[in-house]
Design a protein around this nucleic acid. Structure first.
Lengths: 325, 325
DNA sequence: TCCAAAATCCAAACCGGTTTGAATTGATAA
DNA sequence: TTATCAATTCAAACCGGTTTGGATTTTGGA
């Protein structure tokens, strides 16, 4: 029996007799044989693996949502008999890792997370013509596949809520503005405030708050303002945790003296305080969707047909109350 | 110029003229050439990749320590020009994934996390003679490489602390006892209590508390006891968060009416409450160490020389106080 | 019964590297 | 000058599969 026939029998090609196929399958099972995936992907030019390059930040980042998204991706891939790998890599090596992945053809497609406004990783993948789905958008002329939550809508919901409670002096804590989500959320913040005829005081908008410590410090800084705001929106949940903690430590009554809305689910993190949040629901389903999009892209679907915007939801908690005085 | 020479020039073999090597390197750089890792590992039988198979639990598990460990592993590997991949996989497919990894030789070695008392994954890897390091120990006759924190010492420290405060009625919330750490911690708990001449009431020892919800419910159950304990040790941090929350909701004054010690850093999670914890310091360094151990193992070091036990540290917080009257 | 078409099988080429063993070149010693 | 040995280089085999193109067998219809 030749290699050819065995290969065909195992891969379900039609030009092999049923009886022969049975014999082959039987023998394979008995010997515990399984094709060497290296050899296969070398021959076939496809690895049946999708990848995520995960940049390791210096600070802590217990990004619980990340694991959910990955979980969803992975589940969806099991049905397609594909695998997912995560390659954690120090931030400095991120771009080289992309080049390595692409040139080495270790994976058939990539998911790019934490998109920047101007993202060299995405620029590289576009230039190289390598299939990818961006988790979050970026500034780019050529069409590309992306999945994102609607930053504008989320901020608008939050501000409408605060405005409804009579707040007029509203602050914003932003992640670094090179990050696309931070940029979009800030722009939406400014636009919505302007529409409402309100002044967005620059002293109330603090940037580069991406972890607990910086969130804590930013809120402290805000509290020192002579005429501090009566409400604050925090654009990422780690900063949100720090900011809330700063309020607690300062003895400020949250939801009365100062209202707070945080983007991202703090519910899991902050025990004993029901924070009003802008929530991105269905993280797991989102991951599954991204897998499907990437598979479709690899199968030749046009990138411009693979762009999806999901809606965040404002979850009312106890950290928003009427504007004091 | 032949393939042979090029291959040797790029891989730094000595039997190639310096002038030739320079020419090759130059040309390679210019063409942006890089060897196809598939082809290489097919030929060489080594992939230069280490792996972790990450079982996706049904419930949430923002296991922040996991990311730190992975970060440390990855950093240590960059020096050795190797890569790390994490393959997330649904729990049911875990063992098949191990078989696939091993047979497919996709990785040169594996780290097994969340070890069980009787662990079929480890049994399989031993039988297959595949290099691995266990993150946590297991019950096994043959020697194997492992890295772990000293469960007995941690529990002993916690109990000595509580005993020092005069507590005698002490409860324990345990993760499922098939998990090795839970089993060891419970055994240490029983042993230490016995040594102190104290009775460990079965009603105060609750099992299967592995996430926030189960931790919450377990603590509720404990509170319903007619003669409830005055102190509780929780053997994992997610349950700890739930347990603390239950105390808060029940209006119990933590550290006065009820003392609590939690294994694992809750510090990040519980804002506004300084929990006494049994901490496993240096998660990042621990990851790095595990990488080194695995590399040594692959290079032929004997498994029995690669067993390392680090010491947890009791971090005093505000959740432990004198035994109430 | 015989022929064409379809079904089935196989040998060989290929994927892109590494490694073996032999051949060529250059240098040193007799 | 020549024999000897080391330094270089290269052709070919190999890793373990897939795929092409031709050969062989079966099937179906005239």
């Amino acid at each position: 029996m030749s290699k050819t026939t065995v290969s065909r029998a195992l891969n379900g090609y039609p030009e092999v007799n049923d009886k022969t196929r049975q014999r082959v399958l039987e023998a394979a099972r008995e010997a515990g044989y399984e094709a060497n995936p290296m050899a296969r992907s070398l021959a076939v030019g496809r690895s049946n693996v999708l990848g995520i390059i995960y940049p390791l930040l210096p600070a802590d980042l217990g990004d619980s949502m990340f694991l959910d998204v990955v979980g969803g991706m992975s589940e969806a891939l099991e049905a397609a008999r594909m695998n997912l790998i995560i390659a954690p890599v120090s931030q400095a090596n991120e771009l080289p890792s992309y080049e390595q992945m692409v040139r080495g053809k270790r994976v058939d497609g990539l998911v790019v997370s934490r998109t920047m406004v101007h993202d060299e990783r995405i620029a590289y993948l576009c230039k190289a013509g390598f299939p990818f789905v961006a988790h979050g958008r970026t500034r780019l002329d050529t069409p590309y596949a992306w999945f994102d939550y609607d930053n504008e809508s989320g901020i608008r919901q939050a501000l409408e809520c605060l405005l409804g409670f009579g707040h007029q002096r509203i602050g914003l804590l932003s992640a670094p503005l090179q990050m696309n989500f931070a940029c979009q959320r800030k722009e939406s913040f400014l636009a919505t405030m302007a529409e409402a005829g309100l002044h967005a005081d620059p002293r109330w908008m603090i940037g580069d708050t991406i972890d607990r410590r910086s969130g804590y410090q930013a809120m402290q800084q805000l509290l020192e303002c002579a005429d501090r705001p009566t409400a604050v929106v925090v654009d990422n949940h780690l900063s949100g945790v720090g900011a809330v903690r700063a309020l607690m430590d300062a003895g400020i009554e949250i939801g009365k003296e100062m209202s707070v809305i945080v983007w991202g689910s703090v519910a899991d993190t902050l025990v004993g305080l029901d924070v009003t949040t802008i929530d991105q629901p269905d993280a797991r389903r989102a991951g599954a969707r991204m897998s499907q999009m990437l598979l479709a892209l690899i199968d030749g679907a046009p990138a411009e047909s693979l762009q999806e915007l999901w809606q965040p939801v404002l979850l009312a908690g106890a950290t928003v109350g009427p504007c004091p005085r």
